[in-house]
Design a protein around this nucleic acid. Structure first.
Lengths: 185, 185
DNA sequence: GTCTATATACAGATAGAC
DNA sequence: GTCTATCTGTATATAGAC
């Protein structure tokens, strides 16, 4: 599953053969088919991997006491992945684009479900901050992440992630404060 | 070329066969190969179509006297395409994702060049407005467009385009004014 | 449960009649 | 310049030995 997630991210779903995944995992092709009946099941497995990574990350962030700090740490994690994003794009975002075209199998919305998990977590943070329209704010933040990942990838420029990350962090600081948290400045 | 642009956008590069494009254009396959030696050349042609559409759009917007109004009209054009974006994504953005994986042929950066054209035009508007860091602002605006297109597509929800479009328009109004243009409020 | 060999299908590309 | 028929490569998936 880890091999599938990595190779599918780097080479894309359509350009990746089962032999590629088998090779990356160090097993022969027939072996892969023993555990995954179709290529689509391997894609599902890769999505589950990304979903697990997301749960792990948000689980860590939830340990931070302040929702605003959690969101800033999330942006920090995104920027920390800037080189991967510039080379291969956001794993879930590029999968969403690829699966949308891959009509057969009805998996076109599976990547959207993982993105939805991230959206819901982000929305929860904005809600805890007492901000109006937390769903719109979540769309704005996650959308900015997907957008900067796509641009960084299309232009092969990791600096885009850094610059947008800084702007987003400043943006978070400009949002109205409901007064229950203290300001350090 | 128009048929190639449309079918490649809707079905994706890898899932589109030459027969699909030939069928959409109403000609047999052999005919397509008379004008385009390889599938990659058809992709190039599709990119040229999107680039032409972009030039047409910005050409129209340039007729507006105020750069701020040009940017707002650009956002309006994006939102006007919300149903297409929700179903198939941004034509250039999804192509960028697909071409990044399609290593062979060295076309991985071609879609990035078209996006660069848009970025440069947007940056020019911000510069005319006398705003600091116009390149960062352009990344933010075009990134937001790519992000909301991807989210709308992944979640199959055109309303995301409308809501983000409204937010971006309000954002433009909050940017510092250099004083050379009048405020109506 | 692991691995090799192969069947099946289909897409990119070409040859050549018209 | 248009179109049909076909070659060729390759990827998914399976059969079956071990």
């Amino acid at each position: 599953m880890a091999a599938a997630a990595q190779v599918l991210h780097q080479q894309g779903v359509e350009r990746t053969t089962i032999a590629d995944i088998a090779g990356a995992a160090g097993v022969p092709v027939g072996n892969v088919y023993y555990y995954f009946k179709t290529k689509d099941e391997l894609v599902q497995a890769a999505l589950a991997e990304h979903s697990g990574y997301l749960a792990e990350l948000t689980g860590e962030l939830d340990k931070l006491p302040d929702p605003l700090e959690r969101l800033k740490a999330l942006i920090g994690a995104w920027v920390g992945q800037r080189d991967v994003a510039a080379r291969y794009g956001c794993p879930t975002g590029t999968l969403a684009v690829e699966l949308d075209k891959r009509a057969e199998g009805g998996m076109d919305l599976e990547a959207g479900k993982v993105i939805r998990l991230l959206l819901d977590w982000v929305e929860r943070q904005f809600r805890e901050l007492g901000l109006p329209d937390p769903d719109d704010l979540a769309i704005a933040l996650v959308g900015a992440y997907q957008g900067m990942s796509l641009l960084a990838n299309a232009l092969r420029d990791p600096e885009i992630m850094t610059r947008e990350g800084n702007r987003l962090t400043r943006w978070l600081d400009t949002l109205p404060n409901d007064g229950t948290r203290g300001s350090n400045s």
